[in-house]
Design a protein around this nucleic acid. Structure first.
Lengths: 325, 325
DNA sequence: ACCCTGTCAGAAATCGATTTCACCGTCAAG
DNA sequence: CTTGACGGTGAAATCGATTTCTGACAGGGT
C-alpha cells in the first residue's frame, strides 16, 4: 500500500499538498496534475483507517439486524443501502441472530470504529444502546423500537395489523382463531398478539382465549412446532393468525402434512413471503413495507449525521391487508 | 470516547502499561488491577481505528455477494459468519447487486480499511481482484471463481448438477426440455447450461436445441419472463431446467398462471428454495450446500490469514439430487 | 513606497493504540 | 563480588492522512 508520503515524494511536493489535491483545496494546476499522475502510477488509495482516525468519523453506517435469513430484513437492508450509497455512505450488515451478546459486540465495533451511524432492529428485550447514545453516535431504530431509550424509530402499527388480519379471519366465519407469535420479549411479537386479542374478543371482555396463543421464535421450525401443538389440542383451532412470515412457512407446512391447508383452515399472516405465492392458497397477508422501512430509516439517520438534533421522532408506516391466492 | 491516555492518567501509569494490560503482556498485579478499575470507571473501549492503523490489519473480514435477497447467499453468509466469529473475526456483508462498480468500491474499502481478508462471490464477468492480490490481501472465491485469477475457490460442480437435473427430466419421459439459466457472463450460469446441453443431447451430437435455452438474470422476474417466452413458442417445451432458485419461483408462478404446474410440466431446479416446499409440487431439486460453501470458504480464508501460502486450491463440494413433493 | 488581501505550499502537530528501546531492580549462576 | 538474565516500566517513535500555522509571493489600492 503506497502512502501519501510516497506520492508526495514522487510528485515532488509535500504530503499536505497531496492531501489537498484529494480533498479539493487550493492547489496550483501543475502540482495537482503531478500529484494525480504520481498517484495513478503508484495505484495510491488513501488509507481509510488513517483518515478515520484523524477525522474521528467514517462514511460507513452499520445496519444491525436479528436474522439475515429472513427476507423481510434483507429487503429492509436493500432500502437502507439504496439511500445510503446515494449519499456516499457504505453499509455494513451485522447479523445478531437475536443474540444480545452478538448485538453488543457489533455495537461496540460500530463505536470503536467510529462509524457514522447505526440503524438497528433490536434483538429481543432490552438492547443496550447506552454506549452509542453516551457518545452521541446517531442511532435509528427500525421495525422494533428498543425498550426505554428515546431514539428515532421507524415502525409499523403492529397491533392494528394483527387486529386487521385476525378480523379478516373472523369475517370469514372462523370460530376458534389461534395465534402464533414471536418471542415474548420482542415488542413486535407481543403487539401483534395484542391485535389478535383485540379482534378475537371483539367488543366483549377477553375470555380465556390465550389457550390458543403460542409464543414461538419467529422462525420456520418454531412456527411448525407451534402449529403442531395447536392441532394436537382437544378442540383444535379452525384458523390461525401467524405473526411473521417465516413462521407461516412452518405452519403451512404442518397444515399441508395434515391435509388441512386453506381453505379448510383459515390462515392470516403478518408479513410477506416473497417466495410463497406460487400456488393459489387462499390466505390473508398483512403487507410489510420492508424496503420503505429501510429507506425511511436511512433518511432519518442521514439527517442526524448531518447534525439535525431535534427531539426523537417515531414514524409509523402503514401496512396493507391483502388477500392472496 | 476515553482514550488510553486518560485511562493511564487515572490509573497513575503510562499508556504503554495500559496497552500491555489489554494485550496480556507482563504487568504487575497491582498496576494491572488499577488499570482495569480505571478502564471500567471510564467505560474505556480501545479505538479499533487506531489499533488497525498501528497494526496494519484488523479482525474484520469482508463477504462480498451479488444478491443479498437470495436465500442461497444469506445461508452462505451464515456459514461464513459461524466460522469467522468462532475464530474471533467479525464479518461485514457487502451486497454488489451484480454490479461491477459497486463490487470494486467494496473491494477498495476492504483494502483501504486493511481488512483481514475477503470472501467473494464475484459479480458477473471479470472481477478485478488485482488490487487485493497485489497487496497480498487474502482472498477466497466462493460459488463463482473469478475469471483468470488464481485464488482459492470453493465451488460446486455446476455442469454435473445441471446434467443430473436435466437427466432426471429425461428419465421422466419429457421430450422437449428447455433451460432457463443466468447471465451469460456468469460462470455458474453457463456451466449449468452446459450440463443441460450434455443431458438433452445425450450421446448424440448437439442439435439446434438452443432454441430452448434462455439467458435470464438469476432473479424472480427474469425467470418468469423467460418462462412466458418459452411457453409462447410454437412448439413449447414440456419441461424446464431452471438454473437457480429465484428464477424457479418466477417460472413456477407463470406455470401456475397458465395451469401447467408439475406434473403437467417437468421442472428441475438448481438450488434450494427454503420457503418453497409448502405444497406437494413434484419437482426435482439439485441441493446446494450453501452453508457448507460458506464455512469451507471461511476456513480456507482463515488459513491464509494465518500465513498459509501454499498454491491456490479449488474445493468442489458435492450437491445432491433430491426429488421434492 | 507601503500595506493589505489572497493564493499557494511546506513543516509540524494531531488522532489513539502498539512497540521498540532504554533503564532499573532483583536474583541466580559462576 | 561480578556478570547476566529477566520482569517491570516509561519515553518516544510509529502507523497514514488531515489541518493548523506560518511564510513566501503576487497584485491592487492609497
Amino acid at each position: 500500500m503506497p502512502t501519501i508520503y510516497e506520492v508526495a515524494a514522487a510528485a515532488g511536493v509535500s504530503p499536505a499538498t497531496v492531501s489537498r489535491v484529494f480533498n479539493g483545496a487550493n492547489v496550483s494546476a501543475e502540482k495537482a496534475e503531478a500529484v494525480r499522475k504520481a498517484a495513478k502510477a503508484l495505484a495510491f488509495t488513501p488509507s481509510r483507517t488513517a483518515r478515520t482516525l484523524r477525522l474521528q468519523s467514517s462514511e460507513v453506517i452499520a445496519l444491525v439486524i436479528p436474522d439475515i435469513e429472513n427476507p423481510f430484513f434483507t429487503a429492509l437492508a436493500r432500502g437502507v443501502e439504496d439511500v445510503a450509497r446515494a449519499a456516499g455512505y457504505s453499509v455494513v450488515l451485522c447479523n445478531t441472530d437475536e443474540d444480545h451478546e452478538k448485538e453488543l459486540r457489533y455495537l461496540d465495533i460500530a463505536l470503536s470504529a467510529t462509524m457514522a451511524g447505526v440503524i438497528i432492529a433490536a434483538a429481543g428485550g432490552n438492547s443496550d444502546l447506552s454506549g452509542l447514545l453516551a457518545r452521541k453516535c446517531p442511532v435509528v431504530a427500525v421495525d422494533r423500537s428498543p425498550h426505554g431509550v428515546d431514539v428515532d424509530a421507524v415502525i409499523v402499527d403492529n397491533r392494528a395489523g394483527g387486529r386487521a388480519a385476525t378480523q379478516a379471519l373472523v369475517e370469514q366465519g372462523f370460530q376458534r382463531i389461534a395465534c402464533i407469535t414471536g418471542p415474548s420479549d420482542v415488542e413486535t411479537a407481543t403487539q401483534r398478539a395484542d391485535g389478535w386479542r383485540d379482534a378475537v374478543t371483539g367488543g366483549r371482555a377477553a375470555e380465556a382465549d390465550d389457550r390458543y396463543l403460542r409464543y414461538a421464535d419467529f422462525r420456520v421450525d418454531g412456527g411448525a412446532a407451534a402449529m403442531s401443538d395447536l392441532l394436537a389440542m382437544p378442540e383444535p383451532p379452525d384458523a390461525v393468525f401467524v405473526a411473521n412470515n417465516l413462521m407461516s412457512v412452518g405452519a403451512l407446512r404442518v397444515l399441508s402434512e395434515q391435509g388441512k391447508l386453506p381453505p379448510a383452515t383459515g390462515v392470516a399472516v403478518f408479513g410477506d413471503l416473497p417466495f410463497l405465492p406460487l400456488v393459489p392458497i387462499p390466505i390473508t397477508v398483512v403487507h410489510m413495507p420492508a424496503r420503505h422501512l429501510g429507506t425511511t430509516a436511512a433518511k432519518l439517520l442521514l439527517e442526524r449525521i448531518n447534525g439535525d438534533d431535534q427531539p426523537a421522532r417515531t414514524i409509523v408506516l402503514r401496512n396493507q391487508l391483502t388477500p392472496v391466492g
